[in-house]
Structure formats: structure tokens, C-alpha cells
Design a protein around this nucleic acid. Structure first.
Lengths: 162, 162
DNA sequence: TCAATACTGTTGACTTTTTCAATGATATAC
DNA sequence: GTATATCATTGAAAAAGTCAACAGTATTGA
């Protein structure tokens, strides 16, 4: 696949002409939490997108579907806030999911401006399959961490994400 | 700024008409490490970008500048691999930094295809200021975590990011 | 030595994502 | 009741990501 030239120490001379980029691991940047977070999410969502393609979903649409299945009846505004997306992006995502019959828009009777996104039966079935895929993807992405370490990571991230 | 309607419990009735999206915190999605990572990086890089704007930098260009200052003499290919970017994006980023006199391209005498990116004196000064800003930004983004927790987070992320 | 193959940076086209302003319908505040 | 604010939506523009092709250079192997 990618340039996995992990032939460390291929010769006796110093790291001057190192072929991989492993030497950048000692860099200041490589120790910044912001950078590590960005790289982790890039790798993770990349893998998840690849695996979700089988269901014609991406991480984005999966997230919307997931919240539609949550029983919390989120409005589009809430989805936008929660997913850190522009409201207009939510429109497009919900459009797609609605067109394939996975979710429906229901006007909130208490605020007729607001539309609540709910999953259909087909949507819940789709979510079940997607969820299994995402779990597998996450499991692969976190393969170097023990279960307890994953819990720790989850808790720490939760505190900075909310 | 944003909708900071944190008027929790503004009325006695139940969370049915909750105004924030706090109700979504209990969702399955809100507990997925992938999602939390994405949200954390969105918040973090958003803040960093805002603060770096004062130096006419973004997280991207800051990252390239940082590696150029690392003393590791990265090639553009290495930058692309390390930053998970397409080589053509590196071209644009280096172009910008080169045009403002922060970095220079030096043809690697050992491989004349490859160009090594090194920081100029002005580039190193710029990096010093940018680094301080990024540190402040990171400090704000991680304000809910103790120093030890930050170390834990850094180590866990490092293991899944490389 | 020479030819085939592979890699580097670069350009350009194309798609996707992001960002932002404007709008109609509805709700809230004064 | 009138002004103001909010929601979903549209559309446009900017930024970011993806991909194929190219010239120059290196590597490989006959």
C-alpha cells in the first residue's frame, strides 16, 4: 500500500538519509496533542469510510443516522451543533438519508419551524449493520490499546469534546 | 457568539423541549471514540486556526513550518506522509511559506529529485511566535484535564496515530 | 552499458467539503 | 402587534481533498 519502507538501519551510516519518516516522530509537532488528535481522526475516519462504503454510507451520514436512531428525536439544528457542521450540510445529509428511506423529517408540533429527524424501520436496520462495521473499524484503529486504555481514552476525549 | 443557551432547567417541565443538545450526550454516538476524536480535533483546530490567524497562519501551514524548524530536514514526500496530505497539497503549502520567506527548498544532493524543506531565520522567528500561540490554544482546549491526564492522553493518541 | 521501472515534485482538472449570506415561515420579546 | 430572533433551506463562493499525467532523476537487472 503506502510507502512502508520500514527497513530501519538498512546501512551503517547515520540517519541522515533515512528513507521513512519515522525520524519525524521525535519532532515537537509529533508530540502536540492537537496534531495527534488530527492524525488519529484522519486515520480512523479514513478506515471507517472505506469500510462503510459497502453500505453506501460515510462517517457523516452514519452519524446522522445514528442520532436519528437514538430515540432522542434531534432537530436539524441540534444535529448541526452536535456534529460541528453547518446547518446547510445537515440539510444535504438528511436529504440523502431521506431519499433512500432511512429517515424522515417530522415537523415539531411545539415549534413548527423545527424538523425532528427520526429513523424508519429500514433506517434502523441499516444502522444495525453500519454499527457493526463501525465497531469493527474502531476495533482495528485501536488495536494497539487494551480495553482499559480505550476506556481511559474515551473518558479523556469526552471531557475535552463537550 | 454561538448559541450558548445553557439555561438549563429554565422551566420545570421535563427535558422534552430541551433547548441545548446536551440530551444527545447520552447517545451511542457520543461514546464512540472515533466521534469524540473528530469532535475534539474540530474544536481544537478551530480554536487554533482562529488564534493563528493573527500570524496569517493556519494549523496546516504551522505544521509544515514546525517540521521545517525541526532540524530533521524533511522532504516534501515525508511531509505528505507525516501530515496525511496529498503531495500536491504540500506543494501549495510550501509555496506560501516560501513566498513569505519562512522556508526554502533545497535540492537534496543525494537524491536530486527530492527537495528538503528548511526554515529561514525569519521562519524560525515566526515559528517561535506561532508555537506560543498554539501552546496557549492547546492549553485552553485541554483546560478540563490535569497535566498528568494530558500526558496520558498524549501517549494513548501517539500509539494509535503511528 | 543500457533499457525498463519506480519515485519526486509539480501542474491541472475535478469532486467534495466548508463557509457564508439571504430568504420564507414561524416563534419570542417588548 | 410590531420588532427581533430562530429554523430549515437555497445558492454561491472558497477551501480542501482526490486523481491522473509529466519531466527529471534514481534504481534495477539484463
Amino acid at each position: 500500500m503506502s510507502a512502508q519502507t520500514t527497513t530501519r538501519g538498512n546501512d551503517a551510516d547515520l540517519a541522515e538519509n533515512a528513507n521513512g519518516a519515522q525520524r519525524l516522530h521525535t519532532t515537537e509537532l509529533a508530540n502536540e496533542i492537537e496534531f495527534l488528535t488530527a492524525r488519529a481522526r484522519s486515520l480512523g475516519s479514513g478506515r471507517a469510510n472505506n469500510m462503510l462504503a459497502e453500505l453506501d454510507l460515510k462517517v457523516r451520514s452514519y452519524s446522522v443516522l445514528s442520532l436519528a436512531c437514538s430515540g432522542q428525536n434531534p432537530s436539524q439544528r441540534e444535529l448541526a451543533d452536535f456534529l460541528s457542521l453547518d446547518p446547510s450540510q445537515i440539510v444535504a445529509l438528511v436529504d440523502q438519508l431521506e431519499q433512500r428511506g432511512a429517515v424522515a423529517r417530522e415537523t415539531d408540533p411545539r415549534d413548527r419551524r423545527s424538523k425532528v429527524i427520526v429513523a424508519t424501520t429500514a433506517g434502523r436496520n441499516l444502522y444495525k449493520r453500519a454499527e457493526a462495521i463501525v465497531r469493527r473499524s474502531e476495533d482495528q484503529s485501536l488495536s494497539t490499546l487494551s480495553l482499559q486504555e480505550r476506556e481511559t481514552l474515551r473518558d479523556l476525549l469526552k471531557r475535552i469534546a463537550f
